[in-house]
Amino acid sequence: MAGERAVGLVRELQRAAGGHLPPFRAEELRQALEEMRALYERNQADVSEAKAGRTDLIFLIRFRHCCLLRNQRCIVAYLYDRLLRIRALRWEYGSILPNAIQFHMSAEEVEWFNRYKKSLATYMRSVGGEEGLDLTQDIKPPKSLYIEVRCLKDYGEFEIEDGTTVLLKKNSQHFLPRWKCEQLIRQGVLEHILS
């Protein structure tokens, strides 16, 4: 039935709640676009007939046009909603996305992501003095300067403010400046221990 595929795309995103990014459905998208082309061609043919006097075709043409509009809307909504999810990933994971997520993105989406990353970086460099201000830090209001963290996986050497380095090994615990570990916590390397 006309419109099924495009709605299917939107429905899939709706089901994948919580900002999760399902794989890009290139094949379904192509089919939906193909369907639009077929509808359009049939409409073109009928339009010329209708002009030649067959006024009974006008309703059919209108109906097909509504299908086309609906398909267009669903496809654009699908693509745009995915962009919003990808945008949220930039804030969650930093500028490099895990492979598992990149695997679900289309080439064009990766390109969009890279451009978004670049504009955001330009913006962040332009505010806040010489080095700029990393807005993806300081997500939560600070409660204390140092926090206790546990290492969830081997990370290697990690440099803190005054030049000293600590070795982040799996299951080791550290007492580190909060602003240095925020990103590692979000990446899942460290875990904030709340006692």
């Binding site: 998208l29 639009m36 082309r37 267009q72 654009v76 693509l79 745009y80 962009l83 064009e108």
Partner: peptide, 12 residues
């Protein structure tokens, strides 16, 4: 640009 390249330019 993204929307145009991926979908809109393939539409009627």
């Amino acid at each position: 640009t993204y929307l145009k390249n991926v979908a809109l330019k393939h539409m009627p």
